[in-house]
Protein backbone atom coordinates (compact mmCIF):
# COMPACT_ATOMS: atom_id res chain seq x y z
CA UNK A 1 0.00 0.00 0.00
CA UNK A 2 2.88 2.32 0.78
CA UNK A 3 4.40 1.54 -2.60
CA UNK A 4 1.06 2.22 -4.25
CA UNK A 5 0.78 5.51 -2.43
CA UNK A 6 4.28 6.67 -3.38
CA UNK A 7 3.69 5.49 -6.95
CA UNK A 8 0.32 7.21 -7.13
CA UNK A 9 1.56 10.48 -5.76
CA UNK A 10 4.61 10.57 -8.03
CA UNK A 11 2.49 9.75 -11.09
CA UNK A 12 0.04 12.53 -10.29
CA UNK A 13 2.74 14.94 -9.40
CA UNK A 14 6.06 14.24 -11.14
CA UNK A 15 7.97 16.74 -9.02
CA UNK A 16 7.11 14.78 -5.89
CA UNK A 17 10.30 12.76 -6.12
CA UNK A 18 12.60 15.77 -6.12
CA UNK A 19 15.03 16.80 -3.45
CA UNK A 20 12.92 19.49 -1.81
CA UNK A 21 9.89 17.36 -1.17
CA UNK A 22 12.01 14.39 -0.11
CA UNK A 23 13.61 16.68 2.45
CA UNK A 24 10.23 17.74 3.83
CA UNK A 25 9.37 14.07 3.97
CA UNK A 26 12.51 13.37 5.97
CA UNK A 27 11.59 16.22 8.29
CA UNK A 28 8.04 15.07 8.90
CA UNK A 29 8.74 11.38 9.25
CA UNK A 30 10.83 11.06 12.47
CA UNK A 31 8.44 13.32 14.33
CA UNK A 32 5.34 11.38 13.31
CA UNK A 33 7.23 8.13 13.88
CA UNK A 34 8.14 9.02 17.48
CA UNK A 35 4.59 10.05 18.35
CA UNK A 36 3.23 6.98 16.59
CA UNK A 37 5.56 4.63 18.49
CA UNK A 38 4.37 5.97 21.83
CA UNK A 39 0.78 5.78 20.70
CA UNK A 40 1.33 2.25 19.35
CA UNK A 41 2.56 1.01 22.74
CA UNK A 42 -0.62 2.23 24.38
CA UNK A 43 -2.87 1.01 21.55
CA UNK A 44 -1.26 -2.45 21.75
CA UNK A 45 -2.61 -2.51 25.31
CA UNK A 46 -6.08 -1.66 24.00
CA UNK A 47 -5.82 1.87 25.42
CA UNK A 48 -5.30 5.25 23.82
CA UNK A 49 -3.24 8.32 24.70
CA UNK A 50 -4.86 11.55 23.51
CA UNK A 51 -2.28 13.64 25.35
CA UNK A 52 0.93 12.55 23.67
CA UNK A 53 1.21 15.36 21.12
CA UNK A 54 0.50 17.94 23.83
CA UNK A 55 3.18 16.33 26.02
CA UNK A 56 5.59 16.59 23.05
CA UNK A 57 4.83 20.32 22.75
CA UNK A 58 5.36 20.75 26.47
CA UNK A 59 8.65 18.82 26.25
CA UNK A 60 9.83 20.96 23.33
CA UNK A 61 9.17 24.15 25.28
CA UNK A 62 10.87 23.01 28.47
CA UNK A 63 13.86 21.60 26.55
CA UNK A 64 14.23 24.88 24.72
CA UNK A 65 14.28 26.66 28.07
CA UNK A 66 16.78 24.29 29.66
CA UNK A 67 19.16 23.42 26.82
CA UNK A 68 21.08 26.74 26.84
CA UNK A 69 21.95 26.30 30.53
CA UNK A 70 22.07 22.57 31.10
CA UNK A 71 22.74 21.10 27.65
CA UNK A 72 22.32 17.35 27.37
CA UNK A 73 21.47 17.05 31.05
CA UNK A 74 18.47 19.30 30.43
CA UNK A 75 17.35 17.04 27.57
CA UNK A 76 17.64 13.95 29.77
CA UNK A 77 15.77 15.68 32.58
CA UNK A 78 12.89 16.53 30.26
CA UNK A 79 12.79 12.95 28.95
CA UNK A 80 12.54 11.81 32.57
CA UNK A 81 9.75 14.29 33.22
CA UNK A 82 7.69 13.20 30.20
CA UNK A 83 8.18 9.56 31.22
CA UNK A 84 6.86 10.45 34.67
CA UNK A 85 3.91 12.24 33.06
CA UNK A 86 3.13 8.98 31.29
CA UNK A 87 3.45 7.08 34.58
CA UNK A 88 1.00 9.52 36.15
CA UNK A 89 -1.54 9.05 33.36
CA UNK A 90 -1.18 5.27 33.50
CA UNK A 91 -1.37 5.15 37.28
CA UNK A 92 -4.50 7.31 37.40
CA UNK A 93 -6.04 5.20 34.64
CA UNK A 94 -5.53 1.80 36.30
CA UNK A 95 -5.92 2.94 39.88
CA UNK A 96 -9.20 4.77 39.30
CA UNK A 97 -10.33 2.31 36.60
CA UNK A 98 -11.30 5.24 34.44
CA UNK A 99 -11.26 5.11 30.64
CA UNK A 100 -7.81 6.00 29.29
CA UNK A 101 -9.19 8.34 26.65
CA UNK A 102 -10.83 10.37 29.43
CA UNK A 103 -7.70 10.64 31.61
CA UNK A 104 -5.50 11.53 28.67
CA UNK A 105 -8.06 13.99 27.31
CA UNK A 106 -7.72 15.79 30.64
CA UNK A 107 -3.95 15.45 30.21
CA UNK A 108 -4.24 17.05 26.77
CA UNK A 109 -5.77 20.09 28.47
CA UNK A 110 -3.26 20.18 31.30
CA UNK A 111 -0.09 19.85 29.21
CA UNK A 112 -1.12 22.09 26.33
CA UNK A 113 -2.20 24.70 28.89
CA UNK A 114 1.12 24.40 30.72
CA UNK A 115 3.09 24.54 27.45
CA UNK A 116 1.37 27.84 26.66
CA UNK A 117 1.84 29.08 30.20
CA UNK A 118 5.57 28.30 30.36
CA UNK A 119 6.20 29.86 26.95
CA UNK A 120 3.78 32.74 27.59
CA UNK A 121 2.13 31.77 24.32
CA UNK A 122 5.17 32.66 22.20
CA UNK A 123 7.57 30.70 20.01
CA UNK A 124 11.24 31.25 20.54
CA UNK A 125 14.52 30.23 18.96
CA UNK A 126 16.70 27.63 20.64
CA UNK A 127 20.39 28.17 21.12
CA UNK A 128 21.81 24.65 21.14
CA UNK A 129 24.80 25.68 23.27
CA UNK A 130 26.33 22.61 24.90
CA UNK A 131 23.88 20.35 23.11
CA UNK A 132 24.96 21.52 19.65
CA UNK A 133 26.13 18.04 18.78
CA UNK A 134 22.55 16.80 19.02
CA UNK A 135 21.55 19.55 16.60
CA UNK A 136 24.43 18.98 14.17
CA UNK A 137 23.41 17.41 10.91
CA UNK A 138 24.63 14.28 9.20
CA UNK A 139 23.50 14.24 5.56
CA UNK A 140 21.15 17.08 6.50
CA UNK A 141 19.43 15.08 9.22
CA UNK A 142 19.84 16.29 12.81
CA UNK A 143 21.72 13.82 14.98
CA UNK A 144 18.82 13.91 17.44
CA UNK A 145 16.53 12.41 14.80
CA UNK A 146 19.07 9.69 13.96
CA UNK A 147 19.44 8.99 17.64
CA UNK A 148 15.65 8.76 18.05
CA UNK A 149 15.35 6.30 15.18
CA UNK A 150 18.15 4.20 16.68
CA UNK A 151 16.11 4.01 19.87
CA UNK A 152 13.13 2.91 17.80
CA UNK A 153 15.20 0.08 16.31
CA UNK A 154 16.23 -1.00 19.77
CA UNK A 155 12.61 -0.82 20.89
CA UNK A 156 11.55 -3.08 18.02
CA UNK A 157 14.13 -5.61 19.13
CA UNK A 158 13.08 -5.32 22.78
CA UNK A 159 9.38 -5.84 22.07
CA UNK A 160 10.12 -9.13 20.32
CA UNK A 161 12.75 -10.46 22.67
CA UNK A 162 12.05 -9.43 26.22
CA UNK A 163 9.67 -10.57 28.91
CA UNK A 164 8.18 -7.08 28.98
CA UNK A 165 7.39 -7.25 25.27
CA UNK A 166 5.60 -10.56 25.60
CA UNK A 167 3.65 -9.29 28.60
CA UNK A 168 2.63 -6.18 26.68
CA UNK A 169 1.06 -8.32 23.95
CA UNK A 170 -0.44 -10.68 26.54
CA UNK A 171 -2.21 -7.85 28.35
CA UNK A 172 -3.37 -6.38 25.05
CA UNK A 173 -4.81 -9.69 23.96
CA UNK A 174 -6.73 -10.29 27.14
CA UNK A 175 -6.00 -8.46 30.33
CA UNK A 176 -8.01 -10.74 32.57
CA UNK A 177 -6.36 -13.87 31.22
CA UNK A 178 -2.94 -12.23 31.56
CA UNK A 179 -3.58 -11.25 35.20
CA UNK A 180 -4.73 -14.74 36.00
CA UNK A 181 -1.57 -16.22 34.56
CA UNK A 182 0.48 -14.12 36.93
CA UNK A 183 1.30 -11.01 34.88
CA UNK A 184 1.07 -7.79 36.88
CA UNK A 185 -1.23 -6.34 34.24
CA UNK A 186 -1.59 -2.96 35.90
CA UNK A 187 2.17 -2.48 36.04
CA UNK A 188 2.45 -3.37 32.36
CA UNK A 189 -0.22 -0.79 31.52
CA UNK A 190 1.56 1.89 33.55
CA UNK A 191 4.84 1.00 31.83
CA UNK A 192 3.07 1.34 28.46
CA UNK A 193 1.95 4.85 29.29
CA UNK A 194 5.45 5.64 30.60
CA UNK A 195 6.88 4.60 27.22
CA UNK A 196 4.30 6.78 25.50
CA UNK A 197 5.50 9.71 27.63
CA UNK A 198 9.13 8.89 26.85
CA UNK A 199 8.50 8.83 23.09
CA UNK A 200 6.58 12.11 23.37
CA UNK A 201 9.70 13.58 24.96
CA UNK A 202 11.81 12.25 22.08
CA UNK A 203 9.31 13.77 19.65
CA UNK A 204 9.77 17.11 21.38
CA UNK A 205 13.54 16.78 21.02
CA UNK A 206 13.30 15.86 17.33
CA UNK A 207 10.98 18.82 16.79
CA UNK A 208 13.29 21.46 18.22
CA UNK A 209 16.46 19.95 16.75
CA UNK A 210 14.87 20.27 13.33
CA UNK A 211 13.20 23.63 13.52
CA UNK A 212 15.59 25.13 16.08
CA UNK A 213 12.46 26.93 17.21
CA UNK A 214 10.16 25.87 20.02
CA UNK A 215 6.50 26.68 19.77
CA UNK A 216 3.86 25.69 22.31
CA UNK A 217 1.43 24.33 19.72
CA UNK A 218 3.39 22.90 16.75
CA UNK A 219 3.20 19.26 17.77
CA UNK A 220 -0.51 19.37 18.67
CA UNK A 221 -1.60 19.11 15.04
CA UNK A 222 0.19 15.75 14.81
CA UNK A 223 -2.01 13.93 17.33
CA UNK A 224 -4.49 12.70 14.76
CA UNK A 225 -1.93 11.89 12.01
CA UNK A 226 0.08 9.87 14.56
CA UNK A 227 -2.97 7.85 15.61
CA UNK A 228 -3.84 7.36 11.94
CA UNK A 229 -0.26 6.18 11.30
CA UNK A 230 -0.51 3.51 13.98
CA UNK A 231 -3.85 2.21 12.79
CA UNK A 232 -3.10 2.47 9.05
CA UNK A 233 0.06 0.48 9.74
CA UNK A 234 -2.18 -2.33 10.95
CA UNK A 235 -2.17 -2.12 14.74
CA UNK A 236 -5.74 -2.85 15.82
CA UNK A 237 -7.31 -0.39 18.23
CA UNK A 238 -8.63 -3.32 20.25
CA UNK A 239 -5.07 -4.19 21.29
CA UNK A 240 -2.67 -7.10 21.08
CA UNK A 241 -2.00 -6.98 17.35
CA UNK A 242 0.69 -4.86 15.70
CA UNK A 243 4.28 -3.79 16.10
CA UNK A 244 7.09 -1.37 15.34
CA UNK A 245 7.49 -2.53 11.74
CA UNK A 246 3.86 -1.87 10.95
CA UNK A 247 3.99 1.50 12.64
CA UNK A 248 7.09 2.41 10.62
CA UNK A 249 5.14 1.72 7.42
CA UNK A 250 2.12 3.61 8.75
CA UNK A 251 4.22 6.63 9.72
CA UNK A 252 5.87 6.64 6.28
CA UNK A 253 2.44 6.50 4.64
CA UNK A 254 1.19 9.43 6.67
CA UNK A 255 4.35 11.44 6.00
CA UNK A 256 4.10 10.72 2.26
CA UNK A 257 0.43 11.62 2.33
CA UNK A 258 1.08 14.92 4.12
CA UNK A 259 3.88 15.90 1.77
CA UNK A 260 1.89 14.58 -1.20
CA UNK A 261 -1.12 16.71 -0.27
CA UNK A 262 1.12 19.76 -0.04
CA UNK A 263 2.82 19.05 -3.36
CA UNK A 264 -0.51 18.40 -5.03
CA UNK A 265 -1.57 21.86 -3.86
CA UNK A 266 -4.34 20.71 -1.54
CA UNK A 267 -4.96 23.43 0.99
CA UNK A 268 -3.74 22.77 4.52
CA UNK A 269 -7.13 23.94 5.75
CA UNK A 270 -8.88 20.79 4.61
CA UNK A 271 -6.16 18.37 5.76
CA UNK A 272 -7.87 17.84 9.16
CA UNK A 273 -10.93 16.62 7.23
CA UNK A 274 -8.82 14.06 5.38
CA UNK A 275 -7.03 12.80 8.50
CA UNK A 276 -10.23 12.70 10.53
CA UNK A 277 -12.00 10.57 7.95
CA UNK A 278 -8.89 8.47 7.37
CA UNK A 279 -8.59 7.66 11.07
CA UNK A 280 -12.23 6.58 11.28
CA UNK A 281 -12.02 4.47 8.12
CA UNK A 282 -8.84 2.73 9.20
CA UNK A 283 -10.32 1.97 12.64
CA UNK A 284 -13.41 0.61 10.89
CA UNK A 285 -11.34 -1.80 8.81
CA UNK A 286 -8.95 -3.02 11.51
CA UNK A 287 -11.13 -3.20 14.63
CA UNK A 288 -11.74 -6.65 16.06
CA UNK A 289 -15.47 -6.46 16.78
CA UNK A 290 -15.67 -9.95 18.26
CA UNK A 291 -13.60 -8.71 21.20
CA UNK A 292 -16.10 -6.01 22.13
CA UNK A 293 -19.49 -7.33 23.23
CA UNK A 294 -20.98 -3.86 23.45
CA UNK A 295 -19.62 -0.88 21.55
CA UNK A 296 -20.18 2.39 23.33
Amino acid sequence: MLVLLVGGVSLLEPNFLNAASLRTLAEQFPLIFMLALGQMTVILLGRIDLSNAAVASFAAIVMAKWIPDFGVVGVLAVLAITTLIGVAHGWLHVRAQTASFMITLGGLGVWSGLALFVSEGRSFGVDPGFASRLFDRTFGIPNAAIFAIAIAAFYAYALDNTKFGRRLYAVGNGQRAASMSGVHAERVVIAGFALSGFFSGLAGLVLISWLEIASPTTANALLLPAIAAVILGGTAITGGVGGVGRTLVGALMIAVLRVGLDVAGIETSIQPIIFGILAVISVATTIDRARLPVIK
Binding site: L92, H93, A96, Q97, T98, A99, S100, M102, I103, L105, G106, G107, L108, G109, V110, W111, S112, G113, L114, L116, F117, E120, G121, Q175, R176, S179
Partner: peptide
Protein backbone atom coordinates in the same frame (compact mmCIF):
# COMPACT_ATOMS: atom_id res chain seq x y z
CA UNK B 1 -3.32 29.53 30.02
CA UNK B 2 -3.11 28.26 33.57
CA UNK B 3 -6.92 28.32 33.72
CA UNK B 4 -7.00 25.99 30.71
CA UNK B 5 -4.54 23.65 32.39
CA UNK B 6 -6.61 23.73 35.57
CA UNK B 7 -9.74 22.77 33.64
CA UNK B 8 -7.94 19.74 32.22
CA UNK B 9 -7.03 18.77 35.78
CA UNK B 10 -10.62 19.26 36.91
CA UNK B 11 -11.82 16.94 34.11
CA UNK B 12 -9.50 14.20 35.40
CA UNK B 13 -10.42 14.78 39.05
CA UNK B 14 -14.18 14.90 38.37
CA UNK B 15 -14.16 11.75 36.27
CA UNK B 16 -12.09 9.83 38.82
CA UNK B 17 -14.15 11.01 41.80
CA UNK B 18 -17.46 10.09 40.21
CA UNK B 19 -16.17 6.72 39.03
CA UNK B 20 -14.49 5.79 42.32
CA UNK B 21 -17.30 3.70 43.79
CA UNK B 22 -17.67 1.49 40.72
CA UNK B 23 -14.11 0.17 40.96
CA UNK B 24 -13.85 -3.61 41.37
CA UNK B 25 -11.20 -6.29 41.33
CA UNK B 26 -10.32 -7.66 37.89
CA UNK B 27 -12.50 -5.05 36.24
CA UNK B 28 -10.90 -4.11 32.95
CA UNK B 29 -11.42 -0.62 31.62
Amino acid sequence: FLQDAAEGGIVIAAVIAMNWSSRAKLRVV
